[in-house]
Write a protein that binds this DNA or RNA. Structure first.
Lengths: 213, 213
DNA sequence: CGCCTTACTGACCCCTAGGTCAGTTGCAAA
DNA sequence: TTTGCAACTGACCTAGGGGTCAGTAAGGCG
């Protein structure tokens, strides 16, 4: 009578799909870990989400921690890789480039999945130094290098004033991270609108707060 | 023979001190929660730190959560109250005022206890909306108001360029929070020196990155 | 010094959730 | 169809730690 076979998993009887399992478990894990963090994440729930039993998880992962590492790693690479080529075109003014870069940053940290990832790593990062240093390399280090490149180019073109920011380009994207942190901490409780914040960031970044003599 | 009575608690035999207990337990709790967060904090360890047994904690606090709330509340008010009057003197240029304010911020977020507090609230904040909104009022809201006042005054004096940052002064202190977050995430693993970062922040904040025509 | 109140103790209870494994079943080859 | 194997199940085991409570002793009072 009923044939729910098309839907991914319903109450259909167990199928044996060795190849598909790990990815499905990791996907379920990502969702669970995002929602609850490591400690409060529950393997039975993960199993249910993946449409399997708890035991099956242990056929593919040695422990909760191992699953967690796999999930984070998958998620990091996916999130990082997703909007990669947004700035391969090095045309336009430095102003345009920076604006585009920041829009990208905000999109990921405020609306996107990078926020959940940030939350997890902030919450649970000390248990996995390996992931943390990967994350550092993939985001902070890489971002800094890219930013420095843009700024250098700007200096060459006479658009950017040479200064200490060239050495510590973190400062430039800091407000985006701040907004993400604000969202994580205050959730719906205290809003901080994206638009005006972004405006203020861009404006201050380009011109500073001081009046030009 | 031995009389270690002067040291706070050694292996001296149990004393009955109804008044002093709660504060001692809260102090031990703060230290434990800072170090391990809520879930990994251990009541036996807290008891040991406070020089009492676990049962005694339950004479004064109904549950682990109740102790946690008390500890956080105590800590928030103490940390917030500590450096309050750093800017009651409204003399000097806007530049000086902002520099002083930011030095203060960095001192608390990078070297001080505000960092640990930030970590806890970031990690465990969703379990206590009351504390979170107190924290918001005491830090974000108050800081914004103060900053806006300084900027307004600067505009009046012709030192500050009017702009969107007046509406969203968060942007101005964002890098300090960023640095704190960086420290929390990467601990000793990846260093980010305070001095150059602070320099770059101040410089960019005042003058922006763009070359002045 | 005896007695009573109560701060305090710590062995114990028990629930939660990570981890295990004997048994079940899909599936493909014989 | 039978047989073998490996994917899969879920009841069970166990550790850790929050929470309890019968017992202990400090110390004030008569």
């Amino acid at each position: 009578m009923t044939e729910p076979a098309d839907a991914h998993e319903r109450l259909s009887k167990p199928r044996r799909r060795k190849e598909a399992r790990p990815a499905e478990i990791v996907a379920a894990g990502i969702s669970e870990f995002q929602e609850h963090g490591f400690h409060r994440a529950n393997l039975n729930r993960i199993a249910k989400k993946a449409g399997i039993s708890k035991g099956t998880i242990y056929l593919y992962f040695a422990s909760k921690e191992a699953l967690f590492l796999a999930a984070i790693e998958t998620h990091v690479t996916s999130v990082m890789g997703e909007s990669e080529d947004a700035l391969t075109d090095v045309n336009g003014t430095t102003r345009d480039l920076l604006t585009k870069l920041l829009e990208n940053m905000y999109a990921r940290f405020v609306h996107g999945e990078a926020q959940a990832l940030l939350r997890i790593l902030l919450t649970e990062g000390d248990r996995m130094p390996g992931v943390i240093s990967d994350y550092h390399a993939m985001t902070v280090q890489r971002g800094s290098t890219l930013l420095r490149k843009i700024l250098m180019r700007g200096v060459d073109r006479g658009e950017v004033r040479p200064g200490p920011a060239l050495e510590t380009p973190h400062v430039i994207i800091a407000p985006a991270v701040y907004l993400a942190v604000h969202h994580i901490m205050f959730r719906g409780a205290q809003t901080l609108e994206f638009e005006p914040f972004f405006e203020a960031h861009i404006d201050t970044l380009f011109h500073g707060v001081l009046a030009t003599r």
